[in-house]
């Protein structure tokens, strides 16, 4: 597992650095016409890492729900650990989505917050998932904690497709890149977005494996401490 983790970290580093280079040196600069003047939209560069962290956060929540469902059916401890680690990473990436998104909103829309479908549904998703950690820390008995949090992760994952499709169903000012009409961007911009998407996915898997190991070894340490009498 350690070798796989290191390999994934290396791949992620290469892809993310390449993504940075593509975003700033290859992808064309967006120019808009406003009041008869041509303006360069530099803040659009945020998009090249905002989309990858958003994709990773939603993926992590779905993976967390899949492992949660596996725990509920197979009752194996490792699935609870994987579910918890994935939800934790989903939340971490979710914070980064809100951070980069809000900065972009401020620079482009002139406001820190807009009650539009994507921002609102994502906020609901994050509030719902913060409840997951409250639940996990509130239950002390290990098997109940694992069972309840697995069920919670499955139920909370319902908000993931809802968040994804919100701006495709409800009229919104949030940009839509991928729709039924295809991809709304130039090929070089698409590549500059997809490279960090793969990079972030590799980073997520590497972090998931690392976090899973800490939980696994942590349990073993606790067991040995108990056996040795504290």
């Amino acid at each position: 597992m350690e070798k796989a983790t290191k390999l994934l970290f290396a791949i992620a580093a290469i892809l993310l650095l390449a993504g940075l280079a593509l975003a700033f040196f290859v992808a064309p600069q967006i120019v808009i016409q406003k009041n008869g003047q041509y303006l360069s939209v530099f803040s659009q560069k945020i998009f090249y890492f905002h989309v990858p962290v958003a994709w990773t956060s939603l993926l992590a929540f779905i993976v967390g729900a899949v492992f949660g469902a596996l725990f509920l059916t197979k009752k194996e401890r490792r699935y609870d650990f994987l579910s918890f680690a994935s939800v934790e990473l989903g939340f971490l990436f979710g914070v980064l989505v809100m951070w980069s998104g809000d900065i972009w909103t401020r620079s482009e829309w002139g406001t820190w917050w807009e009650w539009e479908p994507r921002l609102t549904t994502y906020l609901i998703l994050m509030l719902l998932y913060s409840g997951y950690f409250v639940l996990r820390s509130a239950v002390s008995e290990e098997s109940s904690k694992a069972r309840l949090s697995a069920a919670y992760s499955v139920i909370a994952s319902v908000t993931v497709p809802f968040t994804f499709f919100a701006i495709r169903i409800i009229p919104s000012v949030h940009p839509v890149v991928l729709s039924m009409d295809g991809v709304a961007m130039e090929p070089t911009m698409l590549v500059a977005m997809l490279v960090p998407v793969f990079g972030m996915t590799c980073l997520y898997i590497a972090l998931l494996l690392m976090r899973y190991q800490t939980l696994l070894i942590g349990e073993e340490v606790d067991y040995l401490k108990n056996e040795l009498g504290g």
């Binding site: 303006l39 530099f42 803040s43 560069k45 890492f49 962290v53 980069s100 900065i103 620079s107």
Partner: peptide, 17 residues
Amino acid sequence: MQLKQAVPYVVAAYMGI
């Protein structure tokens, strides 16, 4: 937003991540 005005926002977004 023009290049000069947008730089701090882009830097803050990337640095945060």
